[in-house]
Nucleic acid binder design. Structure first.
Lengths: 232, 232
DNA sequence: AACAATTTCGAATATGATTTCGAAAAAATT
DNA sequence: AATTTTTTCGAAATCATATTCGAAATTGTT
């Protein structure tokens, strides 16, 4: 269903975690063997299945057997590719982070050079909301399970999330410098509230009545101008 | 620490779930015995402890042993008061729902009769945000574990949440009828986005720099007027 | 076709948690 | 003080799942 050929993971041979066993084999005999990627496909299938199961069941209720079943394999086979259940989660989240970050950047870059801040912020919102609501199991799983994962992993990804947030900080800071924001607004709080609107949307959004872009439009409208009509 | 004498649970003898054993005893011999409430205190202590543990660890990582320890008792003792781990969770969430609903209603009722819609919405926001960020373990636990609980319970509480939302729907509908809202706004989406801002805040809020009321003020500002300065 | 490496799988293991149970302790009642 | 009821607790039973392991099957190489 959902493929994951290119997820922005920078350097596959670094980022991919093979089990101890597979690693030993690979290093031991012939390191530069290209045929070894035959069943990277299975690996990807397991990750895809994991993302879907996490999206559907959350972290705690996602049995490793569920993942295996959806991937069409056995629980024990998963351990050929991953050291542990946690390692699977970790990679799913990592891929999700990359996808979301890329979605936001792409949306901004698709704009004309001349686009003003209002347009850039709006584009960024569309990028983020699309990523959350597109139906991609990775990004959906990310939103669903993020606060269910073990503390250590959570901290790790909080750091990554914070790095990605730099883009948003810069946007809002620039808007403030240019006098575009109402003076009562605290931009660091506003940014977090904006994330609340966007990320929480997965809790209630159901495809049908509205597209993700429709939702994004409402978010942008609300964030920039609020709901109340202007005086006079 | 946190007590729970009166949580708005309408009819204690109905709402409280005793274990099969305790129930049998009670019905069998003397139903209208008032002395039986001696150790309702323990029951409350267990609930308080559970709320704290759920708040701190989430649903999956909250062991029944953790709850027992924090309550100063044994795991097996908890089963004297509750049929299962789930029954504990269910009551914690039920109490949390009542508290939040009450917090919102109280904030509105504290207003003058003459208060306009803008003031009423602002008050409601303060009530909700206070409830989420006040540090009450019940409401905090609710936000933290809601999407981690088993599907069946989740549906149950979604229904309750939806009933409580009626108050918000009415507020926004009235605002719309009075022509106070910008026409592009979809009030059902706006309401959900507002909830996103408020409920997600527990993910990032740390006491110190801002009070819950400070946060609520920013939420109200953003929701009503947006972040951008008005044209001209 | 023979050989070597990779991948799959079923069975066994290990671990950790909820829950049950019956007896002991504490509290209330007579 | 004796008796009954309520409450606590430790030990065991139960259950579920992640993980390991070695052997089989598959795939790739010469």
């Amino acid at each position: 269903m959902m493929d994951n050929q290119d997820d922005g993971v920078p350097n596959r041979s670094d980022s991919v975690q093979l089990s101890r066993r597979a690693k030993d084999k690979l290093n031991g005999t012939r390191a530069r063997n290209q045929g070894a990627r035959k069943s990277e496909i299975t690996r990807a299938r397991i990750l895809d299945a994991a993302a879907e199961v996490f999206m559907e069941k959350g972290y705690a209720l996602a049995r490793i057997g569920d993942i295996a079943k959806k991937a069409g394999t056995q629980p024990s086979s998963i351990y050929y590719y991953f050291d542990s259940r946690e390692a699977v989660v970790e990679e799913v989240l990592s891929i999700a982070n990359n996808r979301t970050d890329r979605s936001v950047r792409r949306a901004i870059e698709a704009l004309h050079k001349t686009a003003d801040l209002r347009a850039r912020i709006t584009a960024a919102i569309h990028g983020q909301v699309d990523s959350v609501l597109s139906g991609d199991p990775y990004t959906a799983a990310h939103m669903r399970i993020f606060d269910q994962i073990p503390p250590k992993m959570r901290e790790h990804f909080l750091r990554i999330l914070d790095e990605n947030a730099e883009l948003w900080r810069a946007l809002l800071f620039e808007a403030q410098q240019n006098g575009l924001l109402r003076p009562e607004i605290d931009i660091s709080v506003a940014r977090l509230l904006l994330f609340g609107m966007m990320n929480w949307s997965i809790e209630w959004y159901k495809p049908g009545r509205m597209t993700p872009d429709d939702v994004a439009e409402q978010v942008a409208l609300l964030f920039l101008d609020g709901t109340f009509v202007r005086d006079r």
